[in-house]
Design a protein around this nucleic acid. Sequence first.
DNA 1: ACCTGAACACCGTTCAAGT
DNA 2: ACCTGAACACCGTTCAAGT
Lengths: 234, 234
Amino acid sequence: MPPKQGRATPLDRTAVLAEAVVLADEGGLAAISMRALAARLGVVPMALYKHVADRADLVGGMIDTVVQTYPTPDDDGWQARVRARALAARDAQEQHPWMRAAIDEAERPTLTTLAYMDAVAADFIDDGFSVDLTHYAMHALGHRIWGYSTEAFRSAPAGADDEAAAAMLAAQFPHVASIAMDTAMRNPAGACDERHEFAFGLDLLLDAFARLREAGWVSAVPDASLSRPASPST
Amino acid sequence: MPPKQGRATPLDRTAVLAEAVVLADEGGLAAISMRALAARLGVVPMALYKHVADRADLVGGMIDTVVQTYPTPDDDGWQARVRARALAARDAQEQHPWMRAAIDEAERPTLTTLAYMDAVAADFIDDGFSVDLTHYAMHALGHRIWGYSTEAFRSAPAGADDEAAAAMLAAQFPHVASIAMDTAMRNPAGACDERHEFAFGLDLLLDAFARLREAGWVSAVPDASLSRPASPST
DNA sequence: ACCTGAACACCGTTCAAGT
DNA sequence: ACCTGAACACCGTTCAAGT
């Protein structure tokens, strides 16, 4: 083992962030603590504060580290470009499942994430989309731009482990059960093809954007049917 | 002050969850700790463990408490019903902003959340949608079903506080800046109408689902252009 | 310039004990 | 049946000190 006098090579921000990404890949965002990360780096917890401002800065830097690897598409046309970006981001995110929670935890974009959003906006605008429609399209894309559409729950509920309990749940929630059965029938593995489903929703939105653009869509004042009721009850 | 002998009325699970919802409404999910919640209830932390199994069970119970208030739509037709559900959920969620993080933190659905998803699935299936298309439609709706579409960042980046810094950012990220300017021009308040944008994306998806249904859509094996490249590099 | 040590004010959760 | 007290193994972060 190396002598315990500090470290072989002095730390820098890049090394701290790289090790944090590895640690999160292994144990999720919950495994990221200043103390655990410091231990991995063979350093006392407070040494990290020379390289990151605090935990929020650490997590922001981890996001940046991954977003910087998102490739720039060489496709022509907004649709192919945005599609390639979202799918590439989704693939990168599959290797770093903590990204979803990290982006939710971060409250403000960094310069790196802003640059990424600017690049997505450029794909629309530089291809002739109005700024107005680009704005709305990006809102509609939501987290799909970052590579995922944040499904609410990925696994079965607790207590569906034995067959009897599963049958009771199926009787209680027949529509959900019929979806699960239909999926099992169509796919021998019995599982969703998440990538396919992701692309399905993505393409629906992209096709809709194309139609709106053709029709010269302009954002409108919300109509009355959309307004919140004046009083919550009655 | 009341005498400190336990409490005036004994705790039960409903009272614990109700106080937790109030505490989270005030301080966000970060304010929810067993110790802080116990203090609010005038009780020692460990007393809570008689009513909730652990912190995950507490957060799950909080989600259930809110989801139970989501109204059942009385509209006819799948589109009006799903639309009403998603918008009502969105309004409820505006009062409980911690719901987004809580649902992300929860890994498995509870019976209450399963029942809600079953009701959404029923809106499609009972109106003649195939189970297959219902499945894909619900994936495409993603978190919109829960009342929101999880925007990545809501606020400006750090360091955009003075005018000079803001101008520098605008020059650096011109497409994002043009969206912000366009919005400011169209809306005197300079802010997004989040509810309107939410409905925009929602309606795009709903209209697309209607068209697919009409066309007799059936899920297909992913085509080659969708497959992940065999090797990540080269 | 970079790292350390002690300290402060927090966490969730277990266990054995009280009433 | 419900609540308590002490304890254990953790957190992020500040401050003053070391090399």
